[in-house]
Each structure stands twice: as C-alpha cells, then as structure tokens.
C-alpha cells in the first residue's frame, strides 16, 4: 500500500501541494484528475522520488520512501514526453534498467535479452526492437516507455499524462489497452490526467485535485453522480449551472421560486447544477422551469435543444438533451424539471 500523509510542496510562494493525504491499495488503477496547476504531477513526482516535499510523509507498505532516492524506490515512471534515451535502440532502452543494476544482482546477458523480449511482446512491439526512438510513432514511444518502466519490476507504476501527447484516435485505443494491460500484470498504478473522460473510463478510483488539494476521492460513478463540490461538478461531465438564491429552504431563480427542495443548503446565493440529460421535459406548468425552445439540433440518439428560461429579468439560455422521440420545435413552450440536481452554496 502506498500512503501519502500531509504532503506540502511549495514553489516559491505558490503552494503546489497543500496538506495532501492519500492511500492507494495494492493492485489499484488510480487516476489523479485535475486541471493544470492543481498539483497532480507534483504529487506523482514526489511519490516517484523525482521531487521532494517540504513536509509530510510517503511510505510504501509502511516503509519510509523518503529515505530513498528515485533510483532505490523501484518505481516505474512513464514520462509525459516519454523521455526515451534517444541514442539507444528500443531494445537498449528497455534493457537499461536491467543493465544498470549492481553487479551482484544483475542478470546475465541471456536473461536480460529474454526479459526484454518478453516485455516487448507484452506491449506488442517486438518487431521494433532495433529501431531508434525517433523512428517511432507517438503511440509506439508511449508503449516502449511503459515497457522500459516495467523492466525493473516496479512495485508501483506511475504515468504522467500517459496519453497527453497523442492524437485523439490513438488515445482511445491506448486507454483500452492500458486497462487490459493493468488487468494482466496487476501492478499498482497511478496515472495523472487532466481529461475527465480518460480518468472515468480507465481508472478504478479517481482522485480529483484542485489548487493543491484533493477535493474528492471515489469510483468513477461516485465522482460523476455525487460530486462533492461545485468544482467537481463542473469539472467532471457537462453541467447546466444556474445562479439561484436559497431562502428558508426554498430555491429561487431570478426571484421566482422553483418547485424543488434546497437539499439542506443554507440561505444565500448558491448555484444549481444539473446534468443536461437530467432535465426532464414535461407539459407546460408541470416543472420547475418554464422556457421557450429556440433551436434544436439532432445528432445520433440525442436531441439537443436551446431553451430560453423565462426567469426574472432577462432570459437565461440553457442547453438540454432530450430523447429523440420527444419532438421539439423552435417556439415550443416547455416545462423542465431536474430529475437529479445538486445545489452548492456560494457564488463560485
């Protein structure tokens, strides 16, 4: 188990990590998700021993990891831009970690060759072993970087934005592949990403970070369905956000009461978050909002409508997703009701 306790890391006056605690169980595939500058890469580098915290503890299976430098931690690190050794062939890149072992425990040449072959087979790139990194595509480099990191039989595998530098199509393929690879080798893995879709699709557990703090930890379903904060709600999945006022348990939009519960949020300016597909359309007068359909687009199974809500002064335009069997026309007056929603106190 990897345990991070109360980690603080400052770059000048900027707190990259602000008292961060995290436990990772063996065999997990964990995503560190957050916008750039949220501290996720710094946390990853501290676990790897490539950066040092100003305060706090890091332990692997109860053993103090900070007592060891990066070279002694047996951590496999896959760099965002791969950091393949450009003057070595693919084979030598993967063999590197085996060749630099102390003589006493170093494998002999035949064993090294066998192990490298095995790893190249694992990442399905055996046929590239005598190429140089500059001759590979981005996706191939990524997989070689992974094979190289696995060569030292790491106790944890850390991946920094593993798909960040790849184009959209390759990225999708590699996600699948990484999941199945993790299933196969079952090494505790942590990867950093700013792409919520990637985190939700690949990881068993997602750690959402913002401004140097962990704001939520949970399964992909958890963080999507029950976001802990307004930030998580808007960062993960697309949301309709409406500025509302909570007054004595009632929710008002532009001075007009909405027919929904305040969910225990105390009085004051708040924000109402609804997923687009959670807005149910009913006949006029039946829901929390009334509005006029302005524009309808259909693609695939979805019908997306722009609805101008008539609330208070001025109009607020929102986009909702409706099933295609519910026919909508510009000019229709509809009633909308949130099937699920969250209200968070405060302006931000």
């Amino acid at each position: 188990m990897i345990e991070v306790k109360n980690i603080v890391k400052k770059f000048g006056a900027f707190a990259a990590l602000d008292h961060v605690d995290l436990k990772v169980a063996n065999g997990e595939l964990l995503a560190l998700l957050g916008p750039s500058g949220s501290g996720k890469t710094t946390l990853l580098r501290i676990i790897a021993g490539l950066d040092w915290p100003d305060a706090g503890e890091v332990s692997f299976d109860g053993e103090n990891a900070l007592a060891h430098g990066a070279s002694e931690r047996h951590v496999g690190f896959v760099f965002q831009h791969y950091a393949l050794f450009r003057h070595m062939t693919v084979f030598e890149n993967v063999a590197f970690g085996l060749r630099v072992q102390p003589r006493a425990i170093r494998k002999d040449e035949a064993a090294i060759r066998a192990r490298v072959k095995e790893l190249l087979d694992l990442v399905q790139l055996d046929w590239l072993s005598s190429r140089y990194p500059s001759q590979l595509s981005g996706g191939q480099r990524q997989r070689i970087a992974l094979a190289r990191a696995l060569a030292i039989e790491p106790r944890i595998l850390l991946l920094d934005e593993p798909f960040g530098a790849l184009d959209a199509k390759v990225r999708k393929e590699l996600r699948q592949w990484l999941r199945s690879l993790h299933h196969e080798i079952n090494v505790t893995s942590i990867f950093v990403t700013h792409d919520q879709e990637e985190a939700l699709e690949v990881a068993n557990r997602v750690v959402v970070m913002d401004k140097g703090r962990i704001v939520q930890i949970g399964t992909p379903g958890d963080v999507y369905d029950n976001p802990a904060t307004a930030f998580v709600h808007s960062f993960i999945g697309e949301s309709i956000v409406l500025p509302v006022e909570v007054r004595d348990g009632c929710v008002e939009l532009g001075g007009k009461p909405l027919n929904i519960s305040a969910d225990g949020v105390s009085s004051g300016a708040s924000k109402l978050f609804v997923r687009r597909h959670d807005m149910a359309i009913g006949p006029a007068g039946s829901g929390a909002f009334e509005g006029a359909v302005r524009h309808v687009r259909t693609f695939g199974p979805i019908q997306r409508a722009e609805v101008a809500l008539s609330a208070g002064e001025g109009t607020t335009v929102i986009e909702i997703d409706a099933p295609r069997d519910r026919e909508l026309q510009p000019g229709d007056i509809v009633s909308l009701h949130p099937r699920r929603y969250r209200i968070f106190a405060g302006q931000d």
């Binding site: 980690i7 021993g49 040092w52 100003d54 706090g56 503890e57 900070l66 007592a67 060891h68």
Partner: peptide, 11 residues
Amino acid sequence: NGGAGRRNTLP
C-alpha cells in the same frame, strides 16, 4: 536525512 526537504533529483 531521508525526510522531507531534500531538493535535487539528479545527483
């Protein structure tokens, strides 16, 4: 030694 606060990754 071995605690927080060490700085450089490269030796």
